[in-house]
Write a protein that binds this DNA or RNA. Structure first.
Lengths: 147, 147
DNA sequence: GGAAAGAATGAACATCGATTCATGTGTTCA
DNA sequence: TGAACACATGAATCGATGTTCATTCTTTCC
């Protein structure tokens, strides 16, 4: 499929005002292929667990030896190591040996920002302070969306 | 053995150059608590599966009736409906009845941007074209990170 | 060399979650 | 009213995955 399309045939052109949202905007829109989605999902899953989220969050504040890291996020050494391996394989963190210990840090800025963005948006999502009001008339109209 | 990939012992104030990266930057940094992480993880997990990623991606282009949506993302009606329920509960999508069908659309712009950001960063992560190059000499330094 | 610290690895286990199958609910139209 | 369409829902299944336990590997220091 093509890349760059944000396209939206004609629907959703509205995309109104927005308020608090961060810059963002000029991000290239990649059309997701079934194949592509799998890879993306695999990476995003790294952020889909409390333990790894905590690990990355701590690393955002600076590099840390494996053991200290485990202690700070409150998990066992082994469990933490397993997760670190996963994060390493996804190129989200790097570990460099330093004496007896292996110091871990975020791979690069993309990781850092991905984390930030995720936290930011999720927080705003859960708070329900949407800026949808204009585009989406009334939610509650139908009979379907009712648990 | 350097550490300093993204260094910042003092805590990431640096946030260097960056090239293609989108604005971002001015996102508030929320310190993750163990409790908080669970909630965030729950929401982010919505983006951690190919099926839901495809669903959201299609909805980004405009509202769509459930059945059509299922067809476009290539999944069975039931499976799609289950995922839509999940996405609804997380306030990521809304479904409004319209005649026989229920038309689904993204909840608001935060969802759209969260998606965009995720795709953007992930793509750059997987491609390895990090902007770390200058900062992170050789990855392979340690003995640890070797599958 | 040998002991101990720091970390990685493997197996086993338990849990969660995505899909399928079958069925129920709501809506339109004859 | 009843058939057909459009979705939702529940139960069951099966695979994926996070954690624990025990072990191994690496490095340091005596």
């Amino acid at each position: 499929m093509n890349i760059d399309s944000c396209v939206h045939s004609e629907a959703y052109d509205g995309r109104m005002g927005h308020g608090a949202a961060p810059p963002a905007s000029r991000v290239p829109r990649t059309r997701l292929t079934a194949d592509n989605a799998a890879k993306v999902a695999a990476t995003l899953q790294a952020l889909a667990t409390p333990s790894r989220l905590l690990i990355l969050s701590r690393l955002r504040e600076g590099p840390l030896p494996a053991t200290e890291l485990a202690a700070e996020v409150g998990m066992e050494q082994s469990a933490c190591s397993h997760q670190l391996r996963l994060l390493r394989n996804l190129d989200l963190v790097v570990g460099t040996r330093q004496g007896r210990s292996v110091v871990y840090s975020l791979y690069d800025n993309h990781v850092c920002e991905l984390l930030d963005q995720a936290l930011y948006h999720v927080e705003h999502l859960r708070l329900g302070l949407s800026d949808t009001a204009a585009t989406e008339p009334e939610r509650e109209s139908a009979g379907a969306p009712r648990v």
